[in-house]
């Protein structure tokens, strides 16, 4: 299992992760090596075995629809790189 340069770039795009040329080459090699090691998993017979998403028996935990106190906008916005009035300032999505 050898990841091509195109595959690495495709995954990076899905993850919205900018990579330098050096990183593309290094990650391609390292991920190929790791995935090759994980091939062994395919030998395990998992016919009729259900997947486990989490290890405890809780399911569909719901809570009452009650209004509770939340943080004031000033505190929520305190870490914002860019803000305007009570909003996060973002770049244009459609140009």
């Amino acid at each position: 299992m050898k990841l091509s340069r195109e595959e690495v770039l495709h995954i990076a795009l899905l993850a919205r992760l900018g990579l330098t040329e050096t990183e593309v080459a290094r990650l391609g090699e390292q991920l190929s090596n790791i995935l090759e090691n994980f091939e062994a998993l395919q030998q395990v017979d998992t016919e009729d075995i259900p997947p486990t998403a989490q290890s405890i028996a809780l399911q569909n935990v719901t809570k009452d629809d009650e209004v509770t106190a939340s943080l004031p906008p000033s505190q929520i916005l305190a870490n914002a790189p860019k803000k305007e009035k009570n909003f996060f300032r973002v770049r244009a999505v459609l140009e």
């Binding site: 994980f38 998993l41 395919q42 395990v44 998992t46 075995i49 259900p50 997947p51 486990t52 998403a53 290890s55």
Partner: peptide
């Protein structure tokens, strides 16, 4: 299916 789902199934066996 080959990676994530397979891993979740083997997770069941380990549990």
């Amino acid at each position: 299916d080959a990676y994530y789902l397979k891993a979740q199934k083997v997770r069941t066996l380990i549990r």
